[in-house]
Design a protein around this nucleic acid. Sequence first.
DNA 1: TCAATTAGGCCTACAATGTGAACATTGTGC
DNA 2: GCACAATGTTCACATTGTAGGCCTAATTGA
Lengths: 111, 111
Amino acid sequence: MIEKTFLGEFEQMVLLAILRIGDEAYAVPIRGEIEERAERRVSRGALYTTLERLEAKGFVESAMGSPTPERGGRSRRIYAVAAPGLEALENSRAAMANLWQGLDSVTDESR
Amino acid sequence: MIEKTFLGEFEQMVLLAILRIGDEAYAVPIRGEIEERAERRVSRGALYTTLERLEAKGFVESAMGSPTPERGGRSRRIYAVAAPGLEALENSRAAMANLWQGLDSVTDESR
DNA sequence: TCAATTAGGCCTACAATGTGAACATTGTGC
DNA sequence: GCACAATGTTCACATTGTAGGCCTAATTGA
């Protein structure tokens, strides 16, 4: 069996944000999505570096879009999750799920 | 509001493994639990280093147990998750859950 | 036309976390 | 006492996470 691929936590968040957004997934909304959902601050630099690394590893693909007609609206780099990215994401999800299995009651989550 | 604390992925795994094991949570079974549940190889060094760091941050507590009467059975360092560790674990879980929300169907998980 | 302003990309240095390999210690068994 | 087993510990290095600042392309409006 080939070793499964895993992702860092922030990398996972970025991939998930891209999936959530769908088309129009470029840096600004990706950042917003993570900050909102994970309630955690994300610096722009952190995001771009991570996107670059994800692309280098083949987990996402990107292409420049066309400029938008807003003030200052320059071209956006649009991202999409590639197949290996989906797979890695699923691996990570499954791993954590297996470890959480049966422990939900331990942290007194409000469910 | 005080900034919430989050954990790296491996750190989460270690904490979860300790919780799963309960008493008798020392390095060897912790490692086994992670390798089994997450289907991922864990080097002993990686684990000890991470445990040390978790303890330094107050997320786990440890104490040496007594030697066991097995061949080579020297003292084990027994770990327990401390309150801040539980909290951080829950924060991390919630953050990822929020991002996964509604995306379960995207990765064609086998359920 | 051009300065101000805005949106967005990109670079760079550094901090934190993850990892493997080797070494150290303390037991048992003979 | 010597070999071997079970743990623990150390350390250097790789990968990932993070902040901050810089660069560029677009709109506006005088």
